[in-house]
């Protein structure tokens, strides 16, 4: 196994959890087997092709047509080996699937195209966007769901991956034993910016994590609505389609939006965009598609509270 590991470790990413090696052992075993079988096949085929090449037309060839013994050998051996691999994979999966009871829970929401991580401290919710901070050497369980389409949460260095499904709770767990930052990917195709739906796991010492969490909790109570709105702009994914620069993207830019005259693909124009206009754009976007844009935005009914709509409106108003 050590030799296999030396030979093939270039194929796998670094291990940042204690459980990673359980998967890697199986990987090395199968790749060792595969390499052996492939080389043997290759040698035999090349040997046959050279040894039994056609020297002249009409030469006599062997008359063996079958061998029950051989058929049994190459039926039974693969069956045993293959089933063994499946059973090994299953037993490893069992140990990896169920989180320890004391695992620290973090809620994960996937949406086009961002990951939001929520922590709870003293009854208060702390959210981060695209940054998953976790303490080292502590089991973490991620409770995940999606707001729109399928996503999948994958951290190659941790050897974890699980689909994130709307209307369903799924979970993954890990105990990272390495400090540092690790890349996560969305691995289930989710549309335009699928390949940009990334996040980073930051593994930090326990005290640093606790401190960070407390600081975040404190910050969220003192900030003004428009500052909170600026956070929402990122967290709720507005950022993917609406810029702050005045340049239109998938949707109109937020810069200088308030007070602007709005003309729609259908229906009467709005003379000056106001708070009601913004509210309606969030809750029923299809009802007022601005001229020149496509109906790409989905309603945020049930995804934003009145409080949050107020915050984001204040944020948009602050952009001149």
């Amino acid at each position: 196994m050590d030799i296999l590991e030396k030979l093939f470790s270039f194929m796998l990413p670094e291990q940042a959890t204690g459980t990673a090696s359980i998967i890697d052992q199986i990987f090395y075993a199968i790749i060792g087997l595969s390499a052996l079988v492939t080389i043997l096949f290759f040698l035999v085929v090349v040997w046959f092709v050279i040894r039994y090449r056609r020297r002249r037309e009409g030469e006599k060839t062997g008359t063996i047509t079958e061998s029950h013994k051989l058929e049994i050998v190459w039926t039974v051996i693969p069956t045993i080996v293959f089933v063994a691999i499946a059973l090994w994979g299953w037993s490893a999966y069992r140990t990896l699937e169920h989180p320890p009871a004391d695992a620290y829970p973090i809620r994960v929401v996937g949406k086009q195209w961002a990951w939001v991580f929520s922590y709870t401290l003293d009854g208060k919710e702390i959210q981060t966007l695209g940054q998953l901070n976790v303490p080292i050497n502590r089991p973490i369980v991620l409770e995940m769901t999606s707001l729109d389409v399928l996503h999948s949460f994958s951290v190659p260095a941790f050897r974890v991956k699980k689909d994130v499904v709307p209307g369903l709770k799924t979970q993954v767990w890990f105990t990272s034993n390495k400090l540092g930052s690790f890349q996560t990917y969305c691995t289930e195709f989710c549309g335009t910016a699928h390949s940009k739906m990334l996040a980073t796991v930051n593994v930090m010492p326990e005290q640093q994590f606790e401190r960070w969490l407390r600081d975040e909790a404190a910050a969220s109570t003192t900030a003004s609505p428009s500052v909170l709105g600026a956070r929402l702009y990122e967290f709720k994914g507005c950022k993917s389609c609406h810029t702050l620069t005045g340049v239109d993207d998938v949707g109109p830019s937020f810069k200088g939006l308030v007070g602007k005259r709005r003309e729609f693909e259908e229906g009467a124009p709005v003379e000056a965009a106001d708070e009601n206009y913004i509210r309606r754009s969030i809750l029923d976007p299809k009802s007022q598609i601005v001229k020149g844009f496509k109906p790409k935005m989905n309603s945020f009914v049930g995804q934003m509270t009145d409080e949050e709509i107020h915050q984001i409106t204040q944020f948009i108003k602050s952009l001149h």
Partner: peptide, 19 residues
């Protein structure tokens, strides 16, 4: 076929699925 074994084994599939 042989690389199918990696994907048929549940544990290794976790790492390799959708890659």
């Amino acid at each position: 076929g042989l690389t199918g074994l990696f994907l048929a084994s549940m544990a290794t599939d976790v790492q390799l699925h959708d890659t």
